[in-house]
Amino acid sequence: MKKILILICSVSIILGLLPTSPIHAATVNPKKLLEQKYPREVVTVSKSVDLNGDNKKEHLLITDSGNFYLINAKGVIVLIDTNYYSDEEPTIHILNISAKEKHVAVTLDYLPSNTELLVYKYQNGTLKKKLSVMGDVGINISKTGEIMQLWKSHYPEGGWEIAVAHYKWNSKKDKYVGSGELPR
């Protein structure tokens, strides 16, 4: 009995001394994980989602300093972009492109009516920017991932009307393809 107890204690001590692997790091609170590595960063927006269908969640975080981070399923923290400032809190959207593919969209609102949209595709443990548009009037995103950009088409003599551009993901071209009235 003493030998078993000593063996259990020894194994638990040895396991306690081993460094935590990145895979275990991904299971902890993503906000705390980011704040441990970057103590000055304060997370204001976060979302956790399985982006690639591997049943492991990736974590998306935007901080009060305007930085956008991804913590992938292996627990690796990746700085995706900076200067994510807006008049209202940024919003993270998940676009269901297909049963196996999801994209990450971030909207940044600027008063009185402008909305900037940045769309990313998850590739090789990071996010790659695939679309960046500004909606003078607004941006609408459908559940299927189609994006509608509402912008001001100005008349030469003054004034404007609302123009509408549509963007849809084309997997063969690996990009969003625009149709309708695209901004010049």
Rank of each mutant, 00 (worst) to 15 (best):
V43P: 05
I4E: 13
G159D: 00
I23V: 09
I162G: 02
K2N: 11
L79I: 03
V177D: 07
T27K: 11
L79K: 13
T126A: 11
L18A: 01
T144C: 13
S153E: 08
D109K: 14
S10Q: 00
T20G: 13
S171E: 15
Y167C: 02
A105D: 01
I23E: 14
H59K: 10
V78N: 15
P39Q: 04
L118Q: 15
T27C: 07
I14Y: 12
A105M: 09
A165I: 01
T91L: 11
L131M: 10
G66P: 05
G66Y: 06
E41Q: 10
L150Y: 13
I139N: 00
L17I: 14
E35D: 04
D87L: 09
I162V: 14
F68I: 00
L70T: 00
V78A: 14
Y110I: 07
V119P: 03
K102P: 05
Y120G: 05
K2F: 14
P22H: 02
P30Y: 01
L7V: 05
V78Y: 15
V76E: 15
S171M: 12
N52S: 09
S10Y: 07
E161F: 14
Y167L: 05
V11A: 09
S153A: 04
M1V: 05
K2R: 11
L5I: 12
P112Y: 06
Y84G: 04
V177T: 05
L7F: 12
E116C: 05
S171D: 15
Y110K: 06
T107G: 08
Y122K: 02
K152F: 01
Y69C: 11
G53C: 02
T107V: 10
T126C: 07
I94W: 06
Q36A: 15
T115P: 08
D136G: 07
L127T: 02
S86L: 05
